[in-house]
Simulated scan of single mutants.
Amino acid sequence: MSKTLKPGPRALALMHHFESCALTAYRDVAGVPTIGWGMTYYPAGGRVKIGDTISQEQADAMFEQLLARDFSPAVAAVAEQAPTTPAQFGAMVALAYNIGAAGFRGSSVARYHAAGDYPKATTKFALWNKSGGVVRKGLIRRRAAEAALYRSDFRALTELTHGEVQ
């Protein structure tokens, strides 16, 4: 069932909306060197360093590679434990991409989803609202958008992304 799932267009648009794409490495709000679509490491190995540059094509390819290799499988392992809609899968991949595969695997979102308690899983997205130990308004909105996608509330998703994700 879930092995055939992959993040759909809404999930990809959601991640792109919140990540933006930077072709020159910068420090994110937590001070971590970041490049492309919010990447802190490269698919071939190695951490992003300030001064690194990439092309748009490289950013897009690395994003797709990391989703397929690192994040979708982490979510698929959870999705195999309970019926999972494409929207739920995409929302969980978006969360995993932002908090890391290990963070996702240990999250209450993953735990409640695997148990089939979808309403509880939906509420747990909101717990991931900090970066560098500080609650961030952007993360509050991002988690609300991911939760909206998870519950297939596309109207709320559209509102939370200022009409960019429909």
Rank of each mutant, 00 (worst) to 15 (best):
I99C: 04
M62S: 13
Y150V: 04
G90H: 07
A145Y: 12
L5H: 03
W37Y: 06
P73W: 02
E19D: 11
G36D: 07
K137E: 15
A25I: 03
V109A: 10
A114H: 11
R27W: 02
A22R: 13
G51E: 06
Q81T: 07
A145H: 09
T4S: 14
A30F: 03
A102Y: 09
G8H: 05
M15K: 02
A79K: 01
S2K: 05
K6G: 12
R27G: 12
N98Y: 12
A94G: 13
R111L: 08
L139A: 10
A115Q: 14
M15S: 07
V32D: 03
A77M: 13
M1N: 10
A148G: 08
I54Y: 06
G116Q: 08
R47A: 12
V78F: 03
A82K: 08
K130Y: 10
T24N: 11
K3P: 07
Y26L: 12
R143A: 03
D52E: 07
S107F: 03
G38I: 07
D52A: 07
F63A: 08
A74F: 04
A61C: 15
M92N: 03
G132F: 00
D153P: 01
A126E: 01
P119H: 13
A68I: 05
G133Q: 10
G38C: 01
A76W: 08
I140Y: 06
